[in-house]
Design a binder for these strands. Structure first.
Length: 317
DNA sequence: ATCGGGATTGCCT
DNA sequence: GGCAATCCCGATG
């Protein structure tokens, strides 16, 4: 069904003036796809992720490109307070470079902040430090991967603050969707329907599967690791604010008051968010707007957000 | 050595 | 929307 679109896009990419074919194509494709803004005064969300075409030959790159190095976020980025970092992650691109050189990319659209100390819902509550959660106490940018329910993994990134880390909950697939689908389908029942693109990474354990993040990535440094890193989205204007929804975190109901803290953050209206909290969205009706510089004065009109939600739901269905 | 619970997911009704 | 699957980790004795 997307054949025409795919073909058209492919032609477009191939028409790009490129020297180093494979890696540059990958980057250019990524760039094209980032037209899906999901920012707030967004007349975007125009491009459904189904259109985020990619083919086997374009997802391979056998060396770091200049663009990779330019957009990669370093130590400085991670060195900020937990809640601040959780919000700053939104819109950034998580990249996984596989053993065969293929690069998988997904835009972060949902996170949760887990503070140390007082935060009873955190693995590091009360300053508790164990073999499992050691990465939470390591320098900001350290990856914390832990197994959950015996069968799944969750990926966090440590922030500033003793024992604090950010849980990555959902990504918008940008590059390498066929590989992601393959990785995700492997553990599913045979004969199950094919996963839509928006279902590839819309959950903390799903994104670990889709990006092939193994347990042994625990304690690695997201700022310097050759196999996994974070990038700024080159097509996003840093001055343009995101519309961020703050909602209670998920799956921690047993932790009383701390379960109510609105420390889950997601991009309003984005189809790849794992769980939409309508009540939280009413309470912060397009009011939690901020950009890379922090909170903003500008308030986005609510109907803009609504419009984009609807449009997006149609296009991603 | 044993035990209880969990920052989830997928399938079924 | 309910609920089973599944097992590692950490606490306890």
């Amino acid at each position: 069904m997307c054949d025409n679109i795919m073909a058209g896009r492919k032609r477009k990419m191939l028409a790009m003036p490129i020297a180093a074919a494979a890696p540059e194509q990958a980057v250019n494709k990524h760039k094209n796809q980032t037209d899906v803004k999901l920012k707030v005064p967004l007349a975007k969300l125009k491009k459904p992720i189904e259109k985020n075409v990619q083919s086997a030959e374009t997802e391979r790159s056998h060396y770091f490109t200049k663009t990779d190095l330019q957009h990669r976020l370093g130590q400085d980025f991670f060195n900020q307070p937990c809640i601040s970092l959780a919000k700053a992650f939104l819109g950034k691109v998580l990249v996984r470079r596989c053993a065969d050189g293929a690069e998988l990319r997904g835009r972060i659209v949902e996170t949760e902040a887990y503070l140390g100390g007082e935060d009873r819902a955190s693995h590091s509550a009360g300053g508790k430090r164990t073999e499992r959660n050691t990465a939470m106490f390591m320098k900001p940018g350290t990856i914390y991967v832990y197994p959950i329910y015996g069968i799944y993994l969750c990926m966090n990134v440590s922030s500033e603050g003793e024992g604090a880390a950010v849980l990555l909950r959902s990504l918008e697939p940008l590059q390498g969707q066929p590989i992601m689908r393959q990785l995700r389908t492997a553990r599913r029942k045979e004969g199950a329907r094919e996963l839509k693109d928006k279902e590839l990474c819309n959950g903390p354990s799903k994104l670990c599967q889709a990006l092939n993040i193994p347990r042994c990535f625990d304690r690695r440094d997201l700022a310097s690791d050759p196999e996994v890193w974070l990038e700024r989205d080159p097509s996003v204007n840093p001055a343009e604010p995101y519309d961020i929804v703050s909602a209670p975190r998920i799956g921690i109901e047993s932790h009383g008051e701390w379960a109510k803290k609105p420390w889950r953050f997601y991009l309003r209206g984005h189809p790849c968010v794992s769980v939409v909290n309508k009540e939280a969205e009413r309470q912060s009706e397009s009011g939690n707007v901020m950009n890379d510089s922090g909170p903003s004065d500008s308030v986005v009109q609510s109907d803009t957000g609504q419009h984009n939600v609807k449009r997006t739901q149609q296009e991603y269905s």
